[in-house]
Amino acid sequence: MYATEVEGKNLTLGVSGMLWEGSLVMVDQETGSLWSHLLGACMKGPLVGKELEVIPSLITDWKSWKARNAKGSLAWLPRSAIRYRSGSSRLDAGLGLGLVEEGESRIWDFGFLAAHPVINDKLAGRPLVVFFDLSAEAASIFSRLVDDQVLSFTFSENQCLDNETESSWDLQTGAALSGPMQGRQLTRLPGIISDGAAWETFHPKTTVWLPDEKP
């Protein structure tokens, strides 16, 4: 999910019909510049060198989304696919949730996330937590900084709690559901769901989270 305002210009992005290393290349209608879909960076044309801002988003199932966004709207056109459903096991498909922070990048594989639904981690010095709600195959990255306090989270008995206040947190929204933090909201970071191999190609210096890591 990208913001399309670049230097005061509103861009209309679309598919160029080109692939770069097997990955989609987008084109903007206004300048004809070519953009890497995975990097959100302009690779050729008048806007070369510019980057699109990633808008934090969440992939989850409709049931989860509508329960948490009752007033939300739905973009609709006749389906062009049928395969994207929760419970259809994308867990061994090589997908992961990646993040770029201050030039550093890391990816957390869905297969690992299924076994580790709450991962306290750090990237480029920023304390973050990766949440995975297995029921909806929904992966998110949030900052662990609330006010000036760095929280750490644990997952037990189907509940996510922070160790500092023992408040409970929603794995999909990052909102505190009960406890002293109730009503507070973790800041979602712009994680990107990507094929793991493609992520490693486009971020040659990426690190990959492995289950034996103890951050």
């Binding site: 999910m1 808008i55 992939i59 989850t60 409709w62 049931k63 459903r85 929760s86 195959e137």
Partner: peptide, 9 residues
């Protein structure tokens, strides 16, 4: 349908 995945923002 309930189990269809969506990109939400």
């Amino acid at each position: 349908e309930d189990n269809e995945l969506v990109l939400g923002v």
